[in-house]
């Protein structure tokens, strides 16, 4: 029974990471109806930036917030430089640009920082076991950080005028434009926020999976699964989906398929959701008239 409880708690901890990445994906999807295939690679780059800051002798939390700011700027720049020129192009072009971005960011990270696996520090450590050894300090800490981020994002969108403007720009760009919202910049801000959330997720997961240029590929897959499970157009759904997928993955890995097929579990969830309920658990069912 302890084993099961531990698997569930560990699942919630990783689920928090998936939830963050899923939220980043959904933010971009909501605003532009595109899925950013390079989200994982961008988060890995951010984590490497944080790693270099820590290596340079900065205190962890300075490096943490520094990375969040840098990632935000990178996200905004990517939107302005790469996505803006093709915003009215067909889907194939967008997918192509995302794949190009994935290739460039992923390989540049490997080129600059090397392919050897690195140990990433965690700010959470504790001498004595927490909750009778059921949960590690890092699991508890990273779940807390994830929840704080998710709460902040929620408060931002719900209670600030900038958040309202961003929601308006995503929901109905034309009307938003007419009432004076600068839709283009709202999209860029959305990209920046997504990159920053991804960076936090990367920094929280790196101590667990160790840091290397391909670290996020599997995580991105789970985030896709989480986002689809919760409904890809619903941010809170995506968060719940991310947590659910984390628990599901851990239980399946421990009791059903073993660790070698973990990615296949994500694939199965994705196909299962798309076949059985394409709008996800909490998504809107879109019907269109032709």
């Amino acid at each position: 029974m302890d084993g099961l409880a531990h698997q569930v708690i560990a699942g919630i901890a990783t689920g928090g990471i998936y939830a963050s990445v899923a939220l980043a994906l959904v933010m971009i999807y909501q605003a532009t109806h595109h899925v950013n295939f390079a989200q994982g690679e961008m988060a890995t780059l951010s984590t490497f930036i944080a790693w270099s800051m820590v290596q340079a002798g900065m205190p962890y939390w300075v490096a943490f917030f520094g990375t969040v700011v840098v990632s935000f700027v990178i996200g905004v720049l990517v939107e302005r430089i790469l996505l803006r020129p093709v915003q009215n192009a067909p889907v194939l072009t967008h997918v192509g640009v995302f794949i190009g971005l994935l290739l460039i960011v992923g390989n540049l990270t490997g080129w600059v920082f090397g392919y050897t696996t690195k140990v990433f520090p965690t700010p959470f450590s504790s001498e004595k076991p927490i909750m009778g050894g059921l949960v590690s300090a890092h699991e508890l800490g990273s779940t807390a950080v994830t929840l704080v981020v998710l709460t902040l994002v929620f408060l931002f969108f719900r209670y600030t005028s900038l958040g309202l403007a961003m929601r308006a720009a995503a929901y109905n760009p034309r009307s938003a434009r007419l009432v004076g919202v600068r839709v283009g910049w709202m999209l860029a801000l959305g990209w920046g926020l997504a990159a920053a959330i991804g960076a936090v997720a990367g920094m929280m997961v790196a101590p667990v999976v160790f840091l290397d240029p391909t670290m996020m590929l599997g995580i991105l897959l789970y985030a896709f699964a989480g986002a689809l499970l919760g409904g890809i157009d619903n941010p809170s759904g995506a968060v719940i989906g991310g947590f659910a997928v984390g628990v599901l993955e851990n239980l399946a890995g421990a009791y059903v398929v073993g660790t070698e097929l973990k990615l296949t579990v994500a694939l199965a969830i994705i196909i299962g959701v798309l076949v059985v309920r394409p709008s996800g658990l909490f998504g809107r069912v879109v019907t269109s008239r032709v």
Partner: peptide, 28 residues
Amino acid sequence: PALRLGGLYLALTTFSLAVAVPQILKHK
């Protein structure tokens, strides 16, 4: 299943398939 998915979802599903393939091939 791709029939039920718009262009983007198909890209996503096939992307996941591509990532999962080596793992499936290695399975015991």
